[in-house]
């Protein structure tokens, strides 16, 4: 409402943004920019999440590995995710592989740390039962430790969605020339402020959609964890 009759060039009226969006959002645009962004986001997210869960489960279940690797992973996680992007670009260039790798690395360490902590604190009674049933190390990890840690891992995965989106935008802004991040920065450089706002709103909607989708998924996969969160 505040912006309805706006004459500020940087904060155009919603009607102007809507008009601009209608002309910008063509099928071509969707099949290039949006498709590229989603490939980066989903590809990077799934690779990072799977590696994070697997490494976290293996490291978290062995006391020696945990003691040795926790400081290393803590240190790498403390490096702002954005600072890792130029390093990956220096190694892999500015193509799709580099963008997917940037998102994967950004997702991997938070997920790894959450899994590591969750797996390390598995109920001793469950572990005793697994030992009595003659489970080996890997069967214990996959049949006992990981299922018991599902709730915490899901919380970590949900937090990682926002990190993935953030790094997707940055990796696209830093010279890729394609994707939503590149679209926003290109619109600013060519003074197409309405287009820039279109990109911002699409990214907001994408973030909101992913968050809500994750909550639905969480309710399906671990309803008990969701209920305990509501009680808290």
């Amino acid at each position: 409402m505040l912006l309805q009759n706006s004459t500020n060039p940087y904060f155009p009226a919603p009607s102007e943004i809507f008009t601009s969006a209608r002309s910008t959002l063509t099928w071509d645009w969707v099949s290039t920019s949006l498709k590229s962004s989603l490939t980066t986001l989903l590809g990077g997210y799934f690779i990072g999440a799977i590696l994070g869960i697997l490494l976290g489960a293996v490291i978290g279940s062995q006391e020696f590995l945990r003691a040795v690797f926790t400081p290393i992973t803590n240190f790498i996680r403390s490096i702002p995710a954005v600072a890792k992007v130029p390093v990956i670009m220096a190694l892999l260039g500015i193509g799709t592989a580099s963008r997917i790798c940037s998102v994967s690395v950004a997702v991997l360490f938070p997920v790894l740390m959450v899994t590591l902590r969750a797996v390390a604190t598995t109920d001793e009674q469950l572990l005793d039962n697994a030992r009595l049933m003659g489970y080996g190390t890997y069967r214990t990890i996959f049949s006992v430790r990981l299922p018991a840690a599902t709730g915490q891992i899901l919380a970590g995965l949900q937090a990682a969605v926002q990190v993935a989106l953030f790094i997707m935008v940055i990796s696209e802004m830093l010279g890729s020339g394609i994707g939503l991040g590149a679209f926003v920065i290109h619109s600013q450089q060519t003074f197409m402020i309405e287009d820039m706002w279109t990109g911002i709103l699409i990214l907001g909607a994408l973030g909101l959609f992913l968050n809500e989708a994750f909550l639905i998924l969480e309710r399906r996969i671990a309803p008990w964890y969701f209920k305990s969160k509501e009680i808290r």
Partner: peptide, 8 residues
């Protein structure tokens, strides 16, 4: 993602 406001 906050960084998207940077161009603005």
């Amino acid at each position: 993602p906050s960084v998207v406001f940077l161009p603005l």
